[in-house]
């Protein structure tokens, strides 16, 4: 089976920072806003290079979203940066009315998504943000898997006209997708070929799915791993093509199973080709303090959980 090399652990948020830094040089309409988390969001370089295009709004996320919406009127492309929790749940109505309903070209860039935020605990670990954002008409929802892909996605969304939610995280994780890849919004990436089960993963769970596929291969099970970086619009075609061959699917995400990628995949299956599906996701719960690895283990969000889910799905065929 095709394997992927980890070129060295890196955080996805630094991929965002690298992408934003590049955009600063290449697109003069790109402006950036931050709510007192410049270091966490890796926005330092953009701020240093383009102070006139950088807006520190203080701890005032609602105001930040509104200012971003206003900046589009005059042709700017605003990138807002804060934690995923404060990027979505805290400002849902501001995004709904001033950005989504108003059709504004705002890029909501959210770090520290999910449980791998770690020790800060549940107040900061949002596991509902994909659901919140995918329900908004016209919103594009992207959850990238590694540094290289996050950088590529950051560059790509500047070219896309319309509101985007870009979700990434805090911990250093495997960096395995190609450097300088072309990022196509809404286009799934098939990472491995397999016949027995499809593993549809997003964000940090993509590497875990690859690890799971490797272990399953040792046991004689071939898994087709699909990297779904764009949850909305979902690449229905890629999923359906794969499951028509494998006959079952596991979805894997660092998010509540309610409202996440898994439910989006279920919708596609139910409408087109009802087949067994297992969910690797949090089970309608809040998170807690701990190291990212401890939390991923405790909440069943790693390759071990994916392997178990794959075997269950295969049995149900």
């Amino acid at each position: 089976m095709k394997t992927y090399e980890n070129t060295g652990n890196k955080d996805t948020r630094s991929g965002f920072g690298a992408g934003l830094t590049e955009l600063g040089q290449t697109n003069e309409n790109v402006v950036a806003l931050c709510a007192d988390l410049i270091g966490s969001l890796k926005m330092d370089a953009f701020k240093a290079n383009h102070p006139e295009r950088f807006y520190q709004v203080g701890i005032a996320e609602a105001n930040m979203i509104g200012i971003a919406a206003g900046l589009t009127i005059g042709g700017k492309i605003p990138f807002t940066g804060t934690f995923a929790n404060f990027s979505t749940g805290r400002v849902y109505d501001q995004i709904r009315q001033s950005v989504a309903y108003s059709g504004k070209n705002v890029k909501i860039c959210a770090s520290h998504a999910g449980i791998t935020l770690g020790e800060d605990g549940a107040t900061h670990q949002i596991l509902e943000d994909i659901g919140l954002m995918k329900m908004l008409p016209g919103m594009t929802v992207i959850n990238t898997c590694d540094f290289n892909q996050t950088k590529a996605a950051t560059l790509a969304i500047a070219e896309h006209k319309g509101p985007v939610y870009l979700r990434f995280g805090r911990p250093k994780v495997a960096n395995f997708t190609p450097e300088n890849q072309k990022f196509e919004i809404g286009k799934a990436v098939k990472l491995t070929e397999g016949n027995d089960v499809t593993l549809v993963a997003t964000g940090h769970l993509v590497w875990e799915a690859l690890e799971a596929a490797k272990a399953l291969y040792e046991e004689g099970i071939t898994a087709e791993v699909i990297n779904i970086h764009t949850i909305k619009p979902l690449d229905d075609k890629a999923i359906l093509e794969s499951v028509s061959k494998t006959g079952c699917v596991v979805t894997a995400e660092e998010h509540n199973y309610l409202g996440g990628l898994g439910e989006s995949v279920s919708r596609v299956l139910v409408k087109n080709n009802p087949l067994p599906q297992e969910f690797v996701a949090t089970n309608d719960t809040f998170g807690e303090s701990g190291t990212p690895a401890q939390l991923m283990d405790k909440y069943g969000l790693n390759s071990k959980a994916i392997i178990e889910a794959a075997k269950k799905a295969i049995k149900r065929k």
Binding site: Y55, A62, N63, I67, G70, K76, Q94
Partner: peptide
Amino acid sequence: IRIASGSLGQGMSVAIGAAEAKKLNGD
């Protein structure tokens, strides 16, 4: 009309954003 409004309290932020864009544009 340049922005939706109705859910209250959001317009001043939007106006500030538009004002900042004017400054950037030298308008």
